[in-house]
């Protein structure tokens, strides 16, 4: 342990840089296009530049931010907004549960794992799960820190830039920008589904959301989410009971 000790920091730093570099990849670029759309969305919703950039940094997961902006647009109260965002983000827990054993060693301090968990969102998670097999176990936390920090900072800068120029864009380009977010979610969510039941949940949710919005605009997301999720889960159980 005495000899490699001196080289450890440099090794960690070089893996940190490799992680940073893997942020600039196809998934990273697609995520960036979704953030371009988010900047337009936040601006159209009346958020200020600082509120928007702050939200990117502290929330990070894009679905949660879009739910939060949606809740702000509907004019719901703080507890209702927090509840809707929390419901939309439960998915982060199983993702972190799956990621932590991949990068934990016996010597990894707890605070490092808690800090790194903030970077977990669909894109960084997918990239990490893909690349971890090429990273030695002790270097994975450094690698993931580089990836996560780069993704967050780069997208905060991007959002600030797009927000600033969005006012001078011609209306058709603004409209095109605002269509980016729903399409990115529609396709990436469909592709990341683990079970068929998630596709069922998506179809019901997409139809129920706007319908419930007509009658109960403040609770549209909660009702559509709970009903769609429950029906999809029942479908999942029935299918499994039949196949076994």
């Amino acid at each position: 342990m005495s000899q490699p000790q001196s080289q450890e920091p440099t090794r960690h730093f070089s893996w940190f840089l490799r992680g940073a570099r893997s942020a600039f990849s196809v998934p990273g670029l697609i995520l960036a296009s979704a953030f371009v759309g988010f900047a337009g969305l936040a601006k159209a919703a009346g958020l200020s530049l600082w509120e928007t950039v702050f939200m990117v940094g502290v929330v990070w997961a894009l679905p949660a931010k879009v739910v939060l902006v949606g809740a702000i647009l509907s004019g719901v109260s703080l507890p209702a907004a927090a509840f809707a965002v929390a419901l939309s983000s439960i998915r982060l827990m199983p993702m972190v549960v799956a990621l932590v054993p991949e990068m934990r060693t016996e010597r990894t301090p707890r605070w490092v794992l808690y800090t790194l968990s903030h970077f977990v969102a669909v894109t960084s998670w997918v990239l990490a799960m893909q690349h971890f097999r090429d990273v030695s176990r002790e270097m994975r936390t450094s690698y993931y820190a580089g990836l996560g920090i780069t993704l967050i900072l780069a997208n905060m800068l991007l959002v600030a830039f797009v927000y600033t120029v969005a006012g001078s864009l011609p209306p058709p380009m603004m409209a095109a920008l605002l269509l980016l977010t729903p399409l990115y979610f529609l396709t990436s969510l469909w592709g990341s589904a683990r079970e068929r039941a998630m596709h069922v949940a998506m179809i019901i949710g997409m139809i129920a959301g706007p319908l419930v919005h007509l009658v109960a605009p403040s609770f549209d997301l909660l009702i559509a989410g709970l009903v769609g999720g429950a029906v999809a889960f029942a479908w999942h159980k029935r299918n499994r009971a039949r196949s076994t």
Binding site: L87, I90, R91, F185, R194, M198, M202, A224, G229, A230
Partner: peptide, 8 residues
Amino acid sequence: RCVATALV
């Protein structure tokens, strides 16, 4: 996962 997916 079902509830979170339907909500998004």
